[in-house]
């Protein structure tokens, strides 16, 4: 199996000024999810006798991640030269880097592994865009991968905790959540990776820049509630503040022992129709 793994080495733990939204310092690194993607790639390559190609679209600093991948056992590494500064424009990105990543893959591999989301943009759109570019099938947010013969099965999260199992054709793009730990590279491999060659591809296409109006500290959005229906302003205010709602007055019981408290809780749940295991 020819496997590519996309490592973003994007900004992490970006400091945002809580008053102005100004961006402070950040540093670059792979996410746990990207390390998991790399580990999956290495395991699958071992199982299928395949090759692992680590790719990134980023500035020279991003090569550090590629060298880590080489040290851990990747066979080849390519960087597409793309500036990704720490500014609202880059952070607003939505997979604009996917096109650049495709350039690193002159031949479509059987499988492209990605992290579930990068740590800066963090929307997980890149893998789906990669799939679109490559005409590949996709499975996003996989929590588990298994080989079924020569086909890959991906377990992924659906709504409300359901799991979907997908059988992947070739080519396919899979993004995985973190959890699987990247193996520790041997010391000689770390040293060898420092001298290994990393292919460098120029990228001149104008980046798809978002038209950023402002960047502010995030504030939770006011949630919408039904408008009050009272016929006087006074009543509407009372309604909004909940003063008119009929409410069983709160019951406070205790102090109780643990057993009494558990009885009290379970009886309450039963009364309200919350049975154990619905």
């Amino acid at each position: 199996m020819r496997i590519a793994v996309a490592l973003s080495r994007s900004w992490q733990r970006v400091e945002v000024d809580p008053l102005t939204g100004a961006l402070g310092s950040g540093h670059r690194g792979e996410s746990a999810a990207e390390h998991a993607a790399l580990e999956h790639a290495l395991r699958l390559a071992e199982l299928t006798g395949g090759q692992v190609h680590a790719i990134t679209a980023g500035p020279a600093e991003a090569e550090e991640g590629l060298r880590e991948a080489l040290a851990a056992g990747a066979d080849r590494a390519t960087r597409v030269d793309l500036d990704t500064p720490l500014d609202p424009n880059s952070l607003a990105h939505n997979g604009a880097t996917a096109a650049a990543l495709v350039a690193a893959l002159p031949e479509t591999p059987d499988l492209v592994l990605c992290g579930d989301r990068s740590t800066d943009g963090g929307t997980g759109a890149t893998p789906a865009l990669l799939a679109a570019h490559l005409g590949a099938a996709q499975a996003l947010g996989a929590v588990d991968l298994e080989l079924d013969g020569d086909r890959l099965l991906a377990h992924r999260r659906l709504d409300r905790g359901a799991r979907e199992i997908l059988r992947l054709p070739s080519p396919a793009v899979v993004s995985v959540e973190g959890g699987l730990r990247l193996r520790r590279a041997a010391l000689p491999a770390v040293l060898a990776a420092q001298d290994a060659e990393i292919e460098l591809l120029p990228w001149t296409a104008a980046p798809a820049r978002a038209d950023v109006v402002s960047a502010r500290p995030r504030r939770p959005r006011a949630r919408e509630h039904p408008a009050p229906s009272g016929d006087s302003a006074h009543h509407r205010v009372l309604e909004l503040t909940g003063a008119l709602v009929e409410r069983t007055p709160p019951t406070v019981v205790g102090p109780l022992s643990a057993a009494e408290a558990a009885d009290e809780l379970l009886a309450y749940l039963r009364r309200r129709g919350y049975g154990v295991r619905p």
């Binding site: 520790r184 590279a185 010391l187 000689p188 491999a189």
Partner: peptide, 9 residues
């Protein structure tokens, strides 16, 4: 000796 596999120098 280091904590990496094959970690002696």
């Amino acid at each position: 000796r280091t904590d990496r596999p094959d970690g002696d120098i």
